[in-house]
């Protein structure tokens, strides 16, 4: 069982899957960070007309399983769209941007990206909120006393410090995004877990197929962990609450 290696073809499948996992989780993490910051600001808005819908949105996305959310975007949401839109989304499109040819991704990639982004953003928003709470109130008061307008206080004083405080938990959410991207296999996205399952069915070399996939996941998570430690060593204020 252990002494047989996988044929190069199957290792290739796993590498392709790993590439999709990395690409999907990187794109979703980037989009979720931007959206999470917006959601956090909305949640902290002084008017309840913005703060309460944001609270409801966050709690809805945090308290339902990612798998069900992915099913909703893949099966449920497309059923709500007009027929022409669905046809367009499913059809291949090509664009040429400067030197790159951009290919329109298949629908499961879109649904996977949207699902993973919205789910991750809800968690990132809460990490940012904890970061904002870690900025002492005196900072805001002092900035106001210096004559900064409220939005300038946010832009130049609160957000930079909150980002620094919330960097370690943010990296934790990026690790979660890598791990959670595995669920997109349920809507047929050919990422690493999907590939390992496929190799396993094809070769019956379960140990090797799952083993390589597991090592690739652990390696990715370890790289993010080391990056966080490196950032903290280089700049000790990262992750520390301001004084």
């Amino acid at each position: 069982m252990l002494d047989e290696l996988l044929a190069p073809k199957y290792v290739g499948w796993l590498i392709d899957g790993f590439y999709v996992t990395l690409l999907l989780s990187a794109l979703a993490s980037a989009a979720a960070t931007a959206l999470g910051l917006l959601l956090c600001l909305a949640r902290l808005a002084p008017t309840r007309w913005i703060a309460w819908p944001a609270l409801a949105w966050l709690s809805l996305f945090r308290n339902t399983p990612l798998l069900v959310q992915l099913f909703f975007w893949y099966f449920g949401f497309s059923a709500l769209l007009p027929q022409e839109v669905v046809v367009w989304l499913n059809a291949p499109h090509h664009w040429h941007l400067a030197f790159f040819g951009v290919r329109w991704p298949p629908f499961e990639y879109l649904a996977g990206f949207v699902g993973l982004t919205l789910f991750t953003a809800a968690f990132i928003a809460e990490e940012f909120r904890a970061g904002v709470r870690g900025v002492p109130a005196g900072q805001t008061v002092a900035a106001r006393a210096l004559g900064l307008r409220p939005w300038q206080v946010w832009r130049h004083v609160v957000i930079p410090q909150a980002l620094r405080i919330s960097l370690p938990p943010l990296l934790g959410q990026y690790m979660n995004a890598v791990k959670n991207s595995s669920l997109t296999m349920a809507i047929g996205l050919a990422e690493l877990s999907y590939a390992s399952r496929q190799v396993e069915t094809e070769t019956f070399k379960t140990f090797q197929a799952f083993g390589i996939a597991t090592l690739l996941y652990i390696g990715t998570v370890a790289v993010i962990e080391l990056a966080g430690q490196w950032l903290q060593r280089r700049n000790p204020t990262v992750g520390a609450a301001a004084r």
Binding site: M175, M185, S196, A213, Y217
Partner: peptide
């Protein structure tokens, strides 16, 4: 903590 829940379910299943 480092591996996806899905991967662990595959492992335990096997």
């Amino acid at each position: 903590r480092a591996i996806p829940v899905l991967m662990l379910i595959f492992w335990t299943y096997f």
